[in-house]
Design a protein around this nucleic acid. Structure first.
Lengths: 194, 194
DNA sequence: CGAATTAATCTACCCCTGGTAACATATTTA
DNA sequence: TAAATATGTTACCAGGGGTAGATTAATTCG
């Protein structure tokens, strides 16, 4: 008893219920199991976060693949994918927060970046392919992939915390930024901190 | 003895030397002081991180203001600001990592977002003003500000970890993305995960 | 079938770090 | 000089990640 998948399921359950700052003990308890079993099957906390992140990214990817069906244009496709991402995160915000905010001393770059890796890598490949097809330099792909993921991440995070407007607006604004960039409205004196 | 500023200075010193996972005890020791003094003058760990973040953002802003002088165009200004940001972060990576990766239970959204606030807020005001001047809807400003900050943050973080090429390239790629967006090379099937 | 060996699980603990209470020491003020 | 007030120190607590060793269940073998 106490399959790896069941443990991950239990972790998600308790995170959804009790918020993102949940203890390993609580996760074990939710699975009606004691800590050593959890550790034997999952590894350490870092491994748990990684596993949950993997699942989460998978869900986002699936949702994106579905959302993009029937897109009327590339821009519309982008808009749909962003919309579905926002929807998934909003629907499961606690798991999202857990997966992105848990830090570990062995990983000084933060868990958010590890989560980003799983999205940015395939995205980079697509971007590179597209650039090549258009006769453009594909070297930008990785930077762009992390930049895009970061933009989505931070904006979504901020939006989650404040919820200043409807999710559709968030998706619209992000699409506009990522699709067209700032050049439409060039800031005269772009003091652009941090 | 043991001025607030001296304590912050000591914190930065020890973080630079020993890396981002540094203990409050170590910081106190570096300031030749004991923990309760540190706590009396600074507050808790969260307050320390906030204070250090504030300083760091200030440095970035100053560097950006200097860098933008003599820009030949708005795009060139953006490029220069991004370049100076990358330079500051690279030169003080440990403090940057400390300030962005230390999590706290009272702040489930992560310290990175708090750091972002200090940059995104003024940036949003500028964006909004510019949009208004151009007769465009300024409602996008906040979303864009967090998006831009996030793009810079993640890409820089990734670059710091891997250092795959020269910092100038990173700045070039990011400028291109933020200035012109993806529309130049529209992905046909934008499976864009995360 | 019973004994012995092996696998699975629990109890109890360690360690480290953030945070603080209570005590001690210097310093000002009356 | 005595009282009051900063200022600092030691010693401790709390809580969470992680694990060693005892304990129980299961399996194999004579």
């Amino acid at each position: 008893m106490a399959d790896r998948d069941q443990l991950l399921e239990a972790a998600e359950t308790v995170i959804r219920r009790n918020g993102p700052d949940v203890t390993m003990e609580a996760i074990a308890a939710q699975a009606t199991v004691t800590k050593p079993i959890l550790y034997r099957n999952i590894g350490d906390k870092d491994a748990l976060v990684t596993a949950l992140a993997e699942r989460f990214v998978d869900r986002i990817n699936v949702a994106g693949s579905v959302a993009v069906i029937g897109a009327e244009s590339a821009r519309d496709g982008l808009r749909r994918v962003i919309g579905s991402l926002v929807a998934v995160v909003e629907a499961d915000r606690n798991v999202f927060l857990y997966v992105t905010s848990v830090g570990s001393s062995t990983n000084p770059f933060g868990e958010a970046l590890r989560l980003a890796d799983r999205s940015a890598q395939p995205l980079a490949e697509q971007l590179a392919a597209q650039r090549r097809a258009d006769g453009l330099d594909p070297a930008v792909a990785l930077t762009w992939a992390y930049g895009i993921v970061g933009a989505l991440h931070f904006a979504t995070m901020w939006w989650l915390r404040n919820e200043p407007f409807e999710p559709a607006q968030l998706a619209d604004h992000l699409t506009e930024l990522l699709w067209s960039g700032l050049s439409a409205a060039p800031p005269r004196k772009p003091r652009k901190p941090r």
